[in-house]
């Protein structure tokens, strides 16, 4: 792969919790708590994790919709960590976002034409054949009828609206698109259409994607590299096949085994091999000391409570990759968290 398009170093985002008349700060939600992550040019980087793990916040930091509390974000060699809104504006041409909810991300009072034209107008992009023509080309590109530029969002189905959101993101021909759960609100058959569309557009326009999702199978399908997040940290990151074939972090192992497999013949085996995590994700206001996953981890030992594991590659394991764990899972390991017997036991 080629050079990095975006580099994040030690990025943190803490949201203050305030109390009382004077809004005294009493704590903070540590949504993203020290992440080093590079986005390589031309790749699709998948970000997975459960709700509250900070994956959406990280996406918003990348687009600088949010400003990091600490750390540094560099886009194409430019430090954008603390750029103001005005300073960011020229860069918005290069970084765009696709949102999860195709209902709330489009203004219901604007026609599709004006929604898609807005980025072109704001950025003063010359449209030699007129704005309308430019919009119609974009509509056609995402598989919508160009005659529909005068319609309102409510006249479209969920899948079509998501295509409108994609057309808007593409209008400025960006280099990087952050897609935050772009298909999770859609029906299964429509999901596949949008995933295929995103892949086609990537090939056509040389796009780089950061694909944020909680659905591990969709992320596996679309990504080149995948980062797994837990409570504001990246716990494991690797090339797609590496990660899915040889997961090393106990959390990744548990997450993958929890996905229901659409094969009833393997039902018993899937249930037997499932790692059942107990309890819920702890609060990001007061995350556990040391390794954040230790409260739900079956391999946790004393060191996990005192020392935070760094994100490193273990040299003694040939299939290793960047994993933040003191006791990474090895291949063929009998995982202690699994159900001892099938459901009948």
């Amino acid at each position: 792969m080629s050079e990095n398009l975006l580099e994040a170093t030690g990025v943190q985002k803490h949201f203050p919790i305030t109390k009382g008349l004077f809004r005294r700060q009493v704590g903070s939600v540590r949504a993203v708590d020290g992440i080093d992550l590079d986005v390589r040019s031309g790749e699709t980087l998948g970000l997975v994790g459960e709700s509250g793990c900070g994956k959406s916040t990280l996406g918003r930091l990348f687009t600088r919709i949010l400003e990091p509390t600490a750390g540094k974000i560099v886009f194409e060699g430019q430090d954008i960590t603390h750029k103001s809104v005005t300073q960011m504006r020229p860069l918005r041409r290069d970084v765009q976002m696709i949102f999860q909810d195709p209902y709330s991300s489009l203004n219901p009072r604007h026609t599709v034409g004006s929604i898609i034209a807005a980025p072109l107008q704001i950025q003063n992009i010359p449209t030699p054949q007129g704005l309308k023509k430019a919009v119609q080309e974009l509509l056609e590109l995402v598989g919508l009828n160009p005659e529909h530029y005068n319609r309102y969002p409510h006249e479209f189905s969920g899948g079509q609206r998501q295509r409108i959101g994609i057309a808007r993101a593409l209008a400025l021909r960006p280099k990087l698109i952050i897609a935050d759960e772009p298909v999770s609100a859609l029906d299964v058959s429509i999901q596949a259409q949008v995933v295929n569309l995103l892949e086609d557009l990537q090939n056509e326009f040389d796009l780089t994607y950061v694909f944020i999702a909680h659905d591990l199978s969709v992320v596996r399908h679309i990504s080149d590299r995948v980062a797994v997040m837990y409570l504001g940290k990246v716990v494991e990151i690797a090339d797609r096949d590496d990660l899915y074939k040889n997961p090393r972090h106990p959390y990744t192992v548990a997450l993958m085994s929890a996905v229901p497999v659409p094969d009833p013949v393997r039902r018993d085996r899937a249930q037997r091999e499932r790692v059942l995590l107990t309890g819920d994700v702890p609060s990001p206001i007061n995350p556990p000391s040391g390794c954040r996953f230790r409260t739900r981890c079956w391999k946790a030992q004393d060191i996990c409570a005192t020392e935070e594991p760094p994100l490193v590659t273990r040299l003694e394991d040939p299939q290793s990759h960047l994993t933040a764990c003191h006791f990474p899972v090895v291949s063929d390991e009998v995982v202690a968290g699994r159900r001892p017997q099938p459901a009948s036991a």
């Binding site: 189905s157 899948g159 079509q160 029906d187 299964v188 058959s189 429509i190 999901q191 596949a192 259409q193 995933v195 295929n196 892949e199 591990l216 199978s217 969709v218 596996r220 399908h221 797609r240 096949d241 899915y244 993958m256 996905v259 497999v261 659409p262 094969d263 393997r266």
Partner: peptide, 25 residues
């Protein structure tokens, strides 16, 4: 068939493309 073809599956090798049902409900 369309529903089954639309879903990426963890228990299979990665396919180049998904086979969605065209159109919408």
């Amino acid at each position: 068939w369309g529903l089954l073809g639309s879903m990426p599956r963890l228990d299979r090798e990665v396919r180049d493309r998904l086979n969605p049902v065209k159109g919408s409900p």
